[in-house]
Design a protein around this nucleic acid. Sequence first.
DNA 1: CTTGACCTTGTACCTTAGTACAGGGTGTAG
DNA 2: CTACACCCTGTACTAAGGTACAAGGTCAAG
Lengths: 139, 139
Amino acid sequence: MDDLTRGELAKQSGVNRETIRYYERNSLLPMPERSESNYCLFAPKNIQRVRFIKRAQAVGFSLNEIRLLLDIKYGTDSTCGDVREVVGSKIAEIDDKIKSLMAMRDVLTTLSDDCPGGDRPVSDCPILESFSTLVFIKE
Amino acid sequence: MDDLTRGELAKQSGVNRETIRYYERNSLLPMPERSESNYCLFAPKNIQRVRFIKRAQAVGFSLNEIRLLLDIKYGTDSTCGDVREVVGSKIAEIDDKIKSLMAMRDVLTTLSDDCPGGDRPVSDCPILESFSTLVFIKE
DNA sequence: CTTGACCTTGTACCTTAGTACAGGGTGTAG
DNA sequence: CTACACCCTGTACTAAGGTACAAGGTCAAG
């Protein structure tokens, strides 16, 4: 068997060795087998598993969500519908974040456009004035 | 003097009492004066200060950045140009975040559109397949 | 005088996603 | 046999922005 030590798995999958330990602790990776001398033995397929985690993170999933995704992936009666549901709500969440960031940007650009800039004292600054007095973000 | 206790300041400015303590510890609020009996005495203007902090947070500033903003606001030789500079780089930062979220959303919607959904087993799912094998986010 | 509602302090805890390190064991090359 | 490069474990620490709580003090009402 071409099992890997923790350090090898880390190197092969492109993460820190401590990250692997962290994933073990948090059930994103299985508890590894052990050699005679207590070295960890990871099956090679765990390289793919770590990469899966990293790619899912890159598109916005948290590790908690990824644990769920892994459960679906390796579950016996999981369906494509399950996956689409998870992905759909992640898309909605991302859309919400984008909207809220766009609202922030709009407020800031408006304020910045109103500000004369230059060497005027801040007492003239409509930006700080707004932060002090206005209510522009509603719940 | 109509100074406020910490609890009153918290209530008036709409935050938790512990949040006020946190802001004191982190130099976002001044160390309060004390009464005979060691009660905190906050000047009423601190209500505005806390609201300033909350509004600046609402448009995307971190507490560290807000500390800077407060320094500018109360600095003797700060200019509108200083404020515009800080706000300008915050806008750029928000734009970056929006771009990266939009990239994530695009990847996810594309994958979701490719997925048949329904009761198909996940072994057929192009989304999980992508997470397992593809490299779609580049550095 | 007691009760209840405040106030004080220090400290610990929470989330998320790791990173760092000490103190010890193992395995191989020279 | 000794270096040196790995490996093991447990624990502490990081950022950010708070929240929670225990043990004790204060103050006004009844």
